[in-house]
């Protein structure tokens, strides 16, 4: 499964797209996997996940076919 990264999360990962293991089945597990693999992400003031272009809560399931993205603190305007 692919994970889209933007902003500072993209810079921390060094890539705009990374693969995530099949053992990750929901948003909470994804965040834990990210924090383990990229400890610098723990320093962000917030880290949201979007599933299919909607902000998703920790319990939301993710799987093959979902568009999953990491949303670091937004700073538009």
């Amino acid at each position: 499964m692919g994970l889209l990264l933007f902003g500072v999360a993209k810079d921390i990962a060094g890539a705009a797209l990374v693969g995530i293991p099949e053992t990750v089945t929901n948003v909470a597990e994804l965040k834990q996997w990210l924090y383990d693999r990229y400890p610098a992400m723990q320093q962000l003031s917030s880290l949201m996940v979007a599933v299919n272009r909607e902000y998703a809560g920790d319990t939301q399931a993710i799987g093959a076919g979902d568009e999953v993205a990491v949303i670091p603190p937004v700073s538009g305007g």
Binding site: G7, A69, I71, V74, S75, G76, G77
Partner: peptide, 11 residues
């Protein structure tokens, strides 16, 4: 609201 919710980032 745009500044709070819309996924846009500045460097």
């Amino acid at each position: 609201t745009l500044k709070e919710t819309v996924p846009i980032w500045k460097k």
